[in-house]
Write a protein that binds this DNA or RNA. Structure first.
Lengths: 131, 131, 131, 131
DNA sequence: GTGGTCTAGACCACC
DNA sequence: GTGGTCTAGACCACA
């Protein structure tokens, strides 16, 4: 999995990490049941502090994407274990709204935004479909 | 325009403001050429600090959505004035990506996400179509 | 509010803090709508690190007992805002179970345990009822 | 006796084990005078480390619930042998307090908590009464 | 070896 | 002034 941190970004490092791990899972780089690198080793790899990675892992756990087995690592939950709750769907919609609205106000058409979404989808599913 | 601030949100107030103004424009509550409320009056209405509103307006200007005429108000730019640059399109895609990825990893299907996007679109365009 | 930390306890400091704040609220020392001390001032008062207090506050937020307004403090949620979910009830039951079981195995009768619970209840409600 | 370990719990495995053995005894699955499974066999059954089971057994001994006869097994003490000390009663009360306080703060009524306790009691005594 | 906890101290964004 | 983030470094309990 290739993770690239932009230290000067306004997006916190732990949040960048969280997003990239999620994208990695969506892309199929990592499979359910696999263990994420230990907080210390990933921190060393990325050149960031252990606590920063730890915070990201806990955010992923709160989102229901991994679970952390104390003292033995962070494991990606399987799709079966992940029940898509109504709350989560609403959260996604809430996240989607400002992005779509900004696109529209900037002059993008519905079609342009839909195409963009399909492109994002295709990019992420490349490997999954390929398997 | 109805603006509602959630003080307990982790999203900064100025950012919530920015998003809601964008949604208001997308929804057609405000038209191109119209002037946004003055910084002071909007701040008073919402019970937030003047600087917070000011910061939001400047963010909108940076996004190319309004322009601020010193001492005479913030005016919504018309769609004609807004050129959808490639840079902006890429920005939208960049914003869209983590939302879609998270949805997928949580178990949403492509269809569910597309439907959600259409719903967001429909919500925003209600008034525009009605006019 | 009197908070006393036992540094040598096996219970983490942030957890001791969380419990004592909960007890303080239950006891009526602090009312809904009130702001908890700032993380830094409470940390200084107790002689612990800022991050430890911060972790406790976030635990309280996760439990739905307070909400943290970024950069302006942690506020106790009112009972109205707190909807007792089924999940929370089950959590309480799950917490209750080992305590009751241990009491029974050690030879306590049902009555003894019930009396103990009533005593705990009475202790906590003293001030609330007194008001 | 059915013992189920939740690996992803924040509660240490040895502690989960201790609680479930206590519940098993409270429930009447195991009687005073009986010998617990050997450390090795229970560890193998549960797929956990031998040291983990060992730690749990020693915790049970410290609580006065079993006694460990070197090389011949862990025996459940009879109720007669178990003297409920004032210290133990206070310990139970100390354990009960945070659970009750949290319930109250979350909006549970005294009755709800009492009912929950009765339910826990009933669950545990099912088999005892049945015998 | 792993995550959990804790400390000390720093800079920043927001209000 | 507040919480948010980040770093560096330490000790501990668990497995």
């Amino acid at each position: 999995m290739f993770i690239e941190i932009e230290p000067q970004s306004t997006v916190p490092i732990y949040e960048q990490l969280t997003r990239q791990i999620i994208e990695g899972i969506a892309r199929g780089d990592m499979q359910a049941g696999e263990t994420l690198p230990s907080v210390r080793s990933l921190a060393a790899d990325l050149g960031v502090n252990m606590h920063t990675v730890n915070k990201s892992y806990h955010e992923l756990e709160a989102k229901g994407i991994i679970f952390i087995r104390a003292k033995s690592g962070a494991v990606i939950r399987s799709a079966d274990e992940r029940v898509l709750t109504l709350e989560q769907l609403q959260q996604i919609e809430k996240n989607l709204k400002p992005v779509v609205a900004e696109g529209m106000v900037l002059g993008a058409t519905e079609k342009q935004i839909e195409d963009m979404m399909k492109k994002v989808f295709a990019d992420l599913q490349l490997r999954v479909e390929g398997v």
